[in-house]
C-alpha cells in the first residue's frame, strides 16, 4: 500500500451525523466485483434521485467538488455494517481522508487497511472546520506525522491510534507482518490445542 504522509486537496463538507455504511454504499451494489470501480456507488441514494439523475443540491454533485479528496462530516461516520465496500466506495471515488468527531469501529479498521485516514477531531474543531469551509471546496492540508489539519488560517489537530498511524505512514500490510510471526503462531497453536483439547479437530 502507498504510505500516507501528507496531502493537500479540495475538501467537501457533508453536514450530517450518522452517515452510516448503508448510505456510503447501498447493499444492492455490493454484489459487483471491485474491478467495476466502487466510486460510482458512493452515497448513491443521497447523490442521485430515483431516476438515477444527480441531485443538484447535493454537495458532492457541485461542479466545484470534482477533485475532492477529503470529506468532513459530523459524528459517528461509518457506523453500521462491516462492509469494507463502504471504504472501497470512498477510496475509488478518490477520497483519502475523512474528518469527523467519531467513526464506526469496524469502518476505521477497514479504512486503515485501505490507506484511508479516519481523522478524529474535537466537536468544537469540527464546527470550526465547517465554518471555515462554509460550503466552499477549499483545500485542506493534512499532516499525519504532526496530526494536524489546516484550512486557510485555521489549524486544528486530530487524533488517531498510534498503531494505525504507524501503519498508514509505512503503508504496511497486515498479512506480510503476520507471516513473519509464523514460528510464534505455530508454538502458540500447539500449546493452545493441548490446553483446550476439546477444540482440536
Amino acid at each position: 500500500m502507498e504510505p500516507f504522509i501528507t496531502m493537500t486537496a479540495p475538501t467537501c463538507a457533508l453536514d450530517m451525523a450518522n452517515i452510516d455504511t448503508d448510505q456510503l454504499i447501498p447493499a444492492r451494489f455490493m454484489k459487483e466485483p471491485r474491478s467495476v470501480g466502487y466510486g460510482q456507488f458512493l452515497l448513491y441514494d443521497l447523490r442521485f434521485d430515483d431516476q438515477g439523475q444527480p441531485k443538484t443540491n447535493y454537495a458532492l454533485n457541485d461542479p466545484k467538488a470534482q477533485n475532492v479528496q477529503i470529506v468532513l462530516a459530523r459524528r459517528n461516520f461509518g457506523a453500521g455494517s462491516s462492509r469494507e465496500a463502504a471504504v472501497y466506495a470512498l477510496v475509488d471515488y478518490g477520497i483519502r481522508c475523512v474528518i469527523a468527531p467519531s467513526f464506526g469501529d469496524i469502518f476505521s479498521s477497514n479504512a486503515i487497511n485501505n490507506g484511508l485516514l479516519p481523522a478524529i477531531v474535537e466537536e468544537a474543531d469540527c464546527d470550526r472546520l465547517f465554518d471555515q469551509l462554509n460550503g466552499s471546496f477549499q483545500e485542506a492540508s493534512v499532516d499525519l506525522t504532526a496530526q494536524t489539519i489546516s484550512v486557510g488560517a485555521l489549524r486544528v489537530s486530530f487524533d488517531i491510534r498510534a498503531v494505525w498511524k504507524k501503519k498508514l505512514l509505512n503503508g504496511w500490510d497486515d498479512i506480510d507482518l503476520t507471516m513473519q510471526e509464523k514460528t510464534e503462531i505455530n508454538r502458540f497453536q500447539n500449546a493452545y490445542f493441548s490446553r483446550f483439547n476439546w477444540l482440536n479437530r
Binding site: R83, E84, V87, N110
Partner: peptide, 9 residues
Amino acid sequence: GIGASEVAH
C-alpha cells in the same frame, strides 16, 4: 465483525 481485508488475513 471484521472487514474484507481482515477476512483475508
